[in-house]
Structure formats: C-alpha cells, structure tokens
Design a protein around this nucleic acid. Structure first.
Lengths: 232, 232
DNA sequence: TTTGATTTAAATCTAAAGATTGAGAAAATC
DNA sequence: GATTTTCTCAATCTTTAGATTTAAATCAAA
C-alpha cells in the first residue's frame, strides 16, 4: 500500500548526533520515507519545519531540557498540520502527559523495536494518534490525577456551601463584574438589600472585599463550573 | 498464573437484561472471576458496590442517558479503589473522553471479542489502564481539541498585551486579592503610584473596576496561566 | 403555633476605590 | 542628543464599597 503513495517527508530532531544517524539509517531503509532533514537543535528544527514542511517530525525529548515540549507547541502554532512523534528515553507519566497536551500525535520509547517505530509513524501519518499500551496507561495516571486534585478542593470545608440561594445569586452576579446598582437592577431589589447580602457573603467566605469573594468563588468551583488549577 | 490468585469479584451493570446474561455467561467461564452481582440500574449498581466491594465494575454506558458517567463518578467518590471498565456500544470521542475523565480505568466496545474483554479486565485488575488503540486515538482527538480552544482565546486582540511590565505586576497582585495598600507595600512604591497604575490598567483593559480587571485577566490567560474553559 | 432562617430594607458612618490633572526622573528608543 | 515611554508621586475630588445596627415580612419546620 505505502509503496504507491507519495513519499512522506520526515524531519528528525535529536540532540544526540549518534542517535540521530542511527534513526536516519533505519528510516532510509523504508522506501516510503524521505528524510527531509536532521538536526540536533530544537530551534533549528522549528525553522526546518517552516522550510521543508515535513509531514511528520520525530523529536527527542530530554527530561532536563524542556525545550522539546516548547518546540512541539511552536510547531503546532504554525498551523501547518505537521505531526509530531515524540521519541524519548523516559516513560515519565508527567512528561508523556505534557507532550500529548502540547500537541504530540504520539510518544514512543527509544528502547522500542524499529518495526514498532515504523508502525507508529504510519499510524500517525494516516491521521491517528499512537501511544503504546504501557505509555497510555501512564498517561491516564497523570490525566486522572489532575482531576482528582480538582474535586478534592470542592469536597468539604467549602465555605460556598454555607451560602443561601439568594446569596448565591448575588455572588454569581459579582463574578460577572456587577456593582451594587447592577445587581440591584437585575434582581429587582434595592441597593441596600444587595449590600446586606454582600456583607453576609463576605462573612461566610471570610473575605474582606468583592474581589476576594469572586476569587474564592472561582477557585472553589462556584456553580459547578470546573476550572483547572493553575498549571505551568 | 491467574488460577493461583484469589478470585476477582466482578459487578456487571447493563440496562439490557439480555446483554447482561450474555456477558455473565461469558465471564463465568473464566475460573478466576467471581460474578458478585448483576443489575440493570446504575443506582442499584452503586449500592451493590458498597455492599459487595467488587474489584471491578463492568458498566454499560448509553449515549442518551448520562447516568453511567455520573455512576462512575459516584463510585470513585466512595474511595473503595473499585475499578470501572466501561463497556459501550458507542465510540464517540466525547463519551470516551468524559468516561476517562470521571475515573474509568478502561473503555471497550461491545463489538469486541470475548478474549479482548478478558484481556482488558486482567490489565485493569493488575492496576493498569486499558484503552484499545482505536479508542485511544479518538480520546486524544478530544483531549487536544480542548486545549486548542483555550489557546485560541489568547490569540490576538488580547488587551493584556498592551500592559507594561509594571502594570502586569500590579495586575498580578490584584488577582491575588490585594488592595492599594497591600500592593504598595509589596512593590515598595507609594499608594498613589499604585492608583495611577491601576487606573491605567482599567483604561487599557476597558473595564470600570478591579473586579472586572481581575476577571478579564483570569479569562484571558493572564501570565501564561492556562485555565480551562467553563465546562459542564 | 411558635421558632429560626431567609429575604427584604433603611439609616448612618468610615474607609477604600476610582477619576483627573500635573509633573519630575529614569530608561528605552530613535 | 532628542524624543518617547515608563515609572514614580502628589493633591483633590467624587463615588462606590463596606461595616454596623435595626427591623419588618415571609416561610419552612418543629
């Protein structure tokens, strides 16, 4: 099948020059591939993507240097539809998670067989994602962990639960940037009543002003609206 | 290997009674499994989890009824370490994504072979996650899509880009709930200077008060801090 | 039916926030 | 070297926010 298609341009990025040569030799054996270029620098790699428009970039990621992740992100930003396959020596759940998060189409280990690598490349070239079963499992460890942390916040000791339904309505309008007059108008009550509610909200949430109240609401899953925690 | 372990208790939840019997017969052939119970109701299923403490729950999910997803979430909340394997007739990316998000350990289709189902169960019982390659690919479609929507927000026309570095510092402290005095103290400048900065921030962000400024900042990816969009 | 919580409201006061103008010093840019 | 931003600060003023007290009407529950 592959023999009848146009050759797929591949760009190799790996800061280990020897490793780079090894992969290149391995892939040149495949008649359907065309090695568009190789480089040991992530930044040069981005420029080569702009220049040669490869279908796929095989990129090494080292745990100490985070350049690889950022490079993937920048390649994605170009909007050229370039697919990135991560070839890493680490099966760290966090690294796998972040690589997929920034847009990688696959993640394989350097210890895998050449046949597996070719399979991964073909899967990705055909528009699919590819993550080996073992790495997929590690990915989900991290994926679900990030949501568990969220729901732990809105467990108990959430001061929002002490609010009455009317106070929730007032807080909702506060989180939309309304002042006293705006809230009074929207709830058809007097401004002084709104002040009473707002003061009660402050006491219950143990804050001093509306900005702190709004921040508390947003950070504690107000109105079942889930917000991701601040992440690097 | 499995023959020497204690039998694993399995709970089956499927609103199709016939299907339920079929799976039950299939799994009773496996000597290492012990069917702890079967039910066609998600709510009864949760109670059976509390009662029999199965190692694994095999749960059907229908697209129209969202009860299944909520049931998974509630089983997770129990904190009994019960693993949930979704057995669904749909390979919808959104459904797969949400099932894994709420805590499922695996997701397989009803069309799969019995050997594959047994393999999935064993993988999950051994502490891994299991998602077949084809479904894994669909999962990542949705996963990466959700992040692409985020970065589109902070594209252009982001008024935050007009802020000077000092104004960014002030805004950062505003988003932490500080008042004028607090900001002045932390930046070692006078309170009047802070007022000047804040007023400039208001003009640049086209808002009227600090709460609106803070909300604008949080909703437009202030300081590269990524926040998920409001999701149901 | 009475108790307790909620919602509504007013009056008063202090403190903080916000608008505006003007202006000097430093730093970056041209 | 001249120009423009940026950062700093002050003074003044108006408005809004927030604290506190008191209290009436409503409503659900004991």
């Amino acid at each position: 099948m592959r023999e009848f298609k146009r050759k797929s341009r591949i760009l190799l990025v790996d800061d280990n020059a020897e490793h780079l040569r090894g992969i290149k030799e391995l892939l040149t054996l495949e008649t359907s591939y065309d090695i568009a270029g190789t480089t040991t620098s992530a930044n040069i790699g981005i420029n080569l993507v702009k220049k040669y428009r490869p279908e796929i970039v095989i990129m090494d990621i080292n745990l100490p240097e985070k350049d690889g992740l950022q490079a993937i992100q920048e390649i994605e930003k170009l909007g050229l539809g370039t697919k990135v396959l991560v070839l890493s020596g680490y099966d760290d759940p966090d690294l796998i998670y972040r690589a997929m998060k920034v847009g990688a189409k696959g993640y394989v280990l350097k210890t895998m067989s050449s046949a597996q690598l070719v399979y991964a490349i073909d899967e990705i070239l055909s528009g699919k994602y590819y993550l080996p079963s073992a790495l997929s499992s590690k990915f989900f460890e991290h994926f679900q962990q990030s949501f568990r942390e969220e729901s732990e916040v809105s467990d108990e000791e959430n001061l929002l639960t002490y609010l009455t339904s009317r106070e929730e309505e007032v807080l909702e309008l506060l989180t939309q940037g309304n002042n006293y007059k705006g809230i009074a108008g929207k709830l058809f009550i007097s401004e002084t009543t709104v002040k009473t509610h707002v003061n009660n909200i402050f006491q219950k949430l143990q804050v001093n002003d509306r900005t702190q109240a709004v921040l508390y609401a947003l950070n504690n899953g107000f109105g079942k609206k889930i917000r991701a925690k601040i992440s690097a």
